[in-house]
């Protein structure tokens, strides 16, 4: 059974996604969590505290995704990262729904968000460099700019789902991963393609 705090965070995530942080009132959260406003205030003294708790929850999930770097290697690592990020955004749509609200009013959270997404980009860059050094990615000239490439992958990773939602199109894990692999696949060497087929299929 979930604790009251967990329940509040869960319903807050849903409401923040549906109405946005600015438009969600404490009364709505209390109603959705089936508790009184007094009880809600006992657990979180104001909406800022709830927002903070919700984003702490998101950062914990993202940290778990980041820590997977050590356990998944080479191209397989990309696939695991893409899957994990899809599941993260699918479960936490508020993360992209409230980007501007967080940017305007919650500086500390925004800073942490930027740091975390930067870490993801750096992980992608490092993995690309590693794959290039192991002849999985074509880098014959030695001049491939992995900075730009990792930023492109990162951009698609963070913005594919909101764009699909805005256009009213379906979003599935397969389509998400196809969009991301579409950037890397043209760069793969024959060895890279073989390795990818054997591990992912």
């Amino acid at each position: 059974m979930r604790s009251t705090k967990e329940n509040i965070i869960s319903v807050s995530k849903q409401l923040f996604h549906e109405f946005g942080i600015a438009n969600t009132r404490l009364q709505q959260i209390a109603d959705a969590a089936e508790i009184s406003v007094g009880n809600l205030v006992y657990h979180y003294k104001n909406k800022d505290a709830i927002v903070e708790a919700v984003y702490n929850n998101l950062f914990t999930e993202l940290t778990a995704i980041l820590s997977q770097y050590a356990f998944n290697y080479e191209l397989h690592g990309f696939d695991r990262l893409f899957s994990a990020m899809y599941r993260f955004y699918d479960a936490n749509k508020l993360a992209f729904n409230n980007q501007w609200e967080i940017h305007r009013n919650y500086t500390q959270i925004q800073q942490e968000w930027l740091t975390t997404s930067n870490k993801i980009t750096l992980q992608i860059k490092k993995r690309l460099e590693y794959c290039a050094a192991n002849d999985l990615i074509n880098d014959e000239s030695g001049k491939t700019n992995f900075d730009t490439l990792s930023q492109s992958i990162s951009l698609v990773m963070h913005n594919w789902m909101p764009q699909q939602c805005l256009r009213g199109k379906v979003h599935t894990e397969l389509l998400y991963k196809r969009a991301l692999w579409g950037i890397i696949l043209p760069l793969l060497t024959q060895k890279g393609k073989t390795a990818l087929e054997s591990k992912i299929g």
Binding site: N56, A70, Y73, E112, L122, K126
Partner: peptide, 25 residues
């Protein structure tokens, strides 16, 4: 808000490099 430890990009990349090497050995 919990306190996070921040490291700069270069240090983070160096750390990832060590992880990559140790994981592959």
């Amino acid at each position: 808000m919990r306190v996070f430890v921040h490291i700069d990009d270069a240090a983070y990349l160096a750390m990832l490099g060590h992880i990559e090497r140790s994981a592959q050995t």
